[in-house]
Design a protein around this nucleic acid. Structure first.
Length: 521
RNA sequence: CCCGGGGUGGAGCAGUGGUAGCUCGCCAGGCUCAUAACCUGGAGGUCGCAGGUUCAAAUCCUGCCCCCGGAACCA
């Protein structure tokens, strides 16, 4: 059996539709998933929605709908967006599903039986309007009132169950030390380390008086409170509590992709929970950065409902394409760090990289072969690729791209492809000028075009995890020997010998191909 | 106050000891196969500030200034 690779994204609150920031995370995870599949791993890619929250129940009530109905509808809307972006998830878990409930109850019971859960009292600031506790800082920042209602909160004390997180401080610190690769990128690790070293508080993991949510098996009057419930989706989706064998094949997860804001829950609370249940922690937690909006005057803003500046993925996808969307965020926003979005910048990047560089190379190569050789380069079967490949160290380039992908430095991987594969190809076309050469030495011109097509083959393979549709279109425009589905990075420089002459098989209209990315004017 | 990230030509970034690099934009040429695309050349930076270490610093050390983020349930 092939080596397995289990990766997840954070589950999202279905209070509102996904915005470009949420999509950023899914795209980054998708590149990883596609890359691993290409390289022969047995991949399981999980996504989902986090539905067992008071806010969801309340929102559904506002709309006069049963919560489950509301959640299912939102889950459908989310997946519509993910499909439009070609996110290749294998499973989509909703935490309101029975499989999650069952697994959750099983897990919390186990932790309880192991003696890591105890009953106590939670005391804090409670807002009657919100029907929930507010944190000390939330109240403080709002000037002693509830930030949402502007009313003074009540001091309230209620019984609840605590998870003994504080007991795991030493075990966590030891684990971090033994697994320096656990928290990525490194800068995030320091933050968590400081937190854990400063001492951990036990966390309240239950709520009382809620109908919506998962019942605590050892005390049915309570429901399980958000984080304890939410994090468990990573194990319940692969069979924890329902299919032990399946669970054991996939766990531990290879990467959890999350937003940098929830690092502590994934790097401290989550492994502690797993320790408490006698399970292994995940191998890596990767915290990506945020996408900020850049206004016309150049100011950065966080997207928020109150500011009314949410950009939805569909706004961009319907105007341009899912591929263009993927490219922009993968190329412009460093995955480990923060990035910016503006329509102006989007158009710039789209035209420069996609239309002018990649798209135009594709068009000119195809037209040259079509016009001068009727789309068929005779006697090229079994040929070695030529000059470009001796000028550029393709093997090294592929290695570098792989390295960058494995470190989730997607922007750098793409830059490498553009600078080391596409640019040389455009330069080569200019230097050899096959449109002139064909008049004096058609044999030589043919070889030049063969080389250029070969370079497009390389580009298609390297882009496969990033722009799956574009890559496939490019690849299938020629009769390259290997089936597209089986192509892997290594094939870029291994150069499988074609058994047939190279031919253009792209659909043409009046001798021209459809532009991959029409320029934005 | 504390912690983390960052300050490099107009914009966005790479660059952790050895003549400052890339993309976009701008200017001038070339080419005409191609989506007015492509190629070549050019202008433009005392690498936040001040000290220090060194034969040599954007790169190491010290101090300071500025921006962003964080401090328990927010992708």
């Amino acid at each position: 059996m092939a080596e397995r690779f289990y990766l997840t994204t954070a589950i999202d609150y279905p209070n509102s539709r996904p915005h470009i920031g949420t999509a950023f995370e899914k795209i980054g995870a998708d590149v990883q998933a596609r890359y691993r599949r290409m390289e022969g791993y047995d991949v399981f890619f999980l996504m989902g929605n986090d539905e067992n929250t008071v806010k969801v129940a309340r929102k559904a009530a506002e709309l006069g709908r049963p919560p489950k109905d509301y959640c299912d509808d939102m889950a459908r809307q989310f997946q519509e967006v993910w499909k439009a972006l070609d996110i290749s998830y294998d499973d989509f878990i909703q935490t309101s599903e029975p499989r999650h409930h069952a697994g959750c109850r099983r897990f919390i019971q186990k932790v309880y039986d192991n003696g890591h859960i105890y009953k106590g009292h939670y005391e804090g600031w409670y807002c009657e309007g919100c029907e929930e506790f507010k944190t000390e800082t939330q109240i403080k920042e709002a000037g002693g009132v509830c930030p949402a209602h502007q009313t003074p909160p009540l001091r309230r004390r209620e019984p609840c169950y605590f998870f003994a997180l504080s007991k795991f401080q030493d075990q966590l610190l030891e684990f971090y030390q033994q697994h320096p690769e656990f928290m990525q990128p490194e800068s995030r690790a320091n933050e968590v380390l400081a937190l854990v070293q400063s001492g951990l508080q036990d966390v309240n993991i239950t709520r009382s008086g809620q109908d919506w949510g998962i019942r605590v098996p050892f005390d049915e009057a309570y429901t399980i409170y958000v984080w304890f419930d939410a994090l468990l989706n990573y194990v319940t989706a692969i069979g924890y509590g329902s299919d032990e064998e399946r669970f054991r094949t996939w766990w531990p997860a290879d990467i959890h992709f999350i937003g940098k804001d929830i690092t502590r829950f994934h790097c401290a609370l989550w492994p502690a929970m797993l320790f408490a249940a006698g399970l292994e922690p995940p191998r890596t937690v990767f915290a990506h950065g945020f996408v900020y909006l850049k206004g016309d005057s150049g100011e950065l803003q966080k997207m928020s409902k109150t500011l009314g500046n949410i950009v939805e993925p569909m706004d961009i996808i319907t105007k341009f394409s899912g591929e263009a969307f993927r490219y922009y965020f993968l190329r412009e926003c460093p995955f480990p760090g923060d990035g910016e979005f503006s329509w102006h910048r989007f158009a710039e990047v789209y035209n420069a990289d996609l239309a002018n560089n990649l798209g135009n190379l594709y068009s000119r190569v195809i037209t040259l072969i079509t016009k001068n050789y009727h789309g068929h380069l005779h006697e090229t079967a079994g040929q070695q690729p030529g000059v470009i490949f001796t000028e550029v160290d393709t093997e090294r380039t592929v290695e570098q791209v792989e390295e960058h992908i494995e470190k989730c430095q997607y922007n750098q991987a793409l830059e490498r492809i553009w600078r080391q594969v596409l640019d040389p190809a455009n330069r080569y076309a200019d230097q050899k000028a096959p449109w002139n050469l064909v008049k004096t030495d058609p044999e030589a011109a043919k070889h030049v075009l063969y080389d250029l097509a070969e370079q497009l083959r390389a580009v298609a393979i390297l882009l496969k995890p990033f722009l799956p549709r574009t890559a496939e279109t490019i690849y299938r425009s020629f009769n390259f020997p290997q089936p597209w589905e089986e192509v892997r990075f290594e094939d870029v420089w291994v150069h499988p010998r074609p058994v047939e002459d190279l031919r253009v098989v792209a659909p043409l209209e009046g001798g021209k191909v459809k532009p991959l990315f029409p320029r934005i004017t």
